[in-house]
Amino acid sequence: MKPPPFGYTRPRSLDEALATLSTHGPDARPLAGGQSLIPLLNLRLARPSLLVDLAFIPGLADVQAENGTVVLGAMVRQRAVERDALIAQRVPLLAEATRLVGHPPIRNRGTVGGSLAHADPSAEYPAIALALDAELVVRSASGERVVPARDFFVDLFTTALAPGELLTAVRIPVPPPGTGWAIQEIARRHGDFALAGAAVLLRKTGDGTCEHAAIALFGVATRPLRVTAAEHALTGQPLTAESIREAAALAVEAIDEPLSDVHGSAAYRQRMAEVVARRALEEANRRAGT
């Protein structure tokens, strides 16, 4: 239960960090809050030759609002997200999801970028990024590119990040006023990884017709999923108990590569996906204004 030996460097600028990552390639791993990477090191499931500590680089831990977008630096601690008044007001889904991430001591260290780049299929942030149509800002020694969340999460613990690339920020479009939102999950204890979870955004017109629906599942497949079939089924339809139940039933069909482990079988997680999707749709519908 002790990490294997590795080198350690503490860059003082983003350029220095990117140059180091570029030189060392896949043997170097960025270290953000360490709440996923250090357990992997302790269990010897990861064996990098060099850790590049991002904590001493100025400017990576800012929360900014610009033109209808909230931009979070990759090193913003989860605890800071939880306490941020701007986020609570503009992206309440993110604030609520944060309270489901691990326990307070984990959130005190854990970062936004670390959770997104680790891409645990049971984690809340990747699903939230998908539901909110967030964009991920990726830098390398050769420049910057912006990856939509729906192209970022590729597979189990696998993202679109190439060796030498670093996630530096996430841009979240602020949902229009009146947007209903909800996150629901089933876990063994508060703070444990979800066995099934759903994040939902809904907008409706004055007569209760669904204008926009975003439904993301987590904890059920090898990566977070958007349930586009259910989104299409709801859009343009009245939001009723019946239409919500039918949409939630479509959640199961989106699960192409189900997760199954000692904590929950594939069959259990599939059943629960429908349950959390329905609960999240109902809650988002109650919160949605017109």
Binding site: Y8, Q35, N42, H103, P105, R109
Partner: peptide, 24 residues
């Protein structure tokens, strides 16, 4: 547990509770 599950190693760093097994 040495992987962040049990909380036995909790200490305060800059006033915030953290897992000292999940910090180098």
């Amino acid at each position: 547990c040495e992987h962040g599950v049990c909380g036995a190693c909790t200490v305060l760093v800059d006033g915030a509770a953290v897992r000292s097994c999940l910090m180098l």
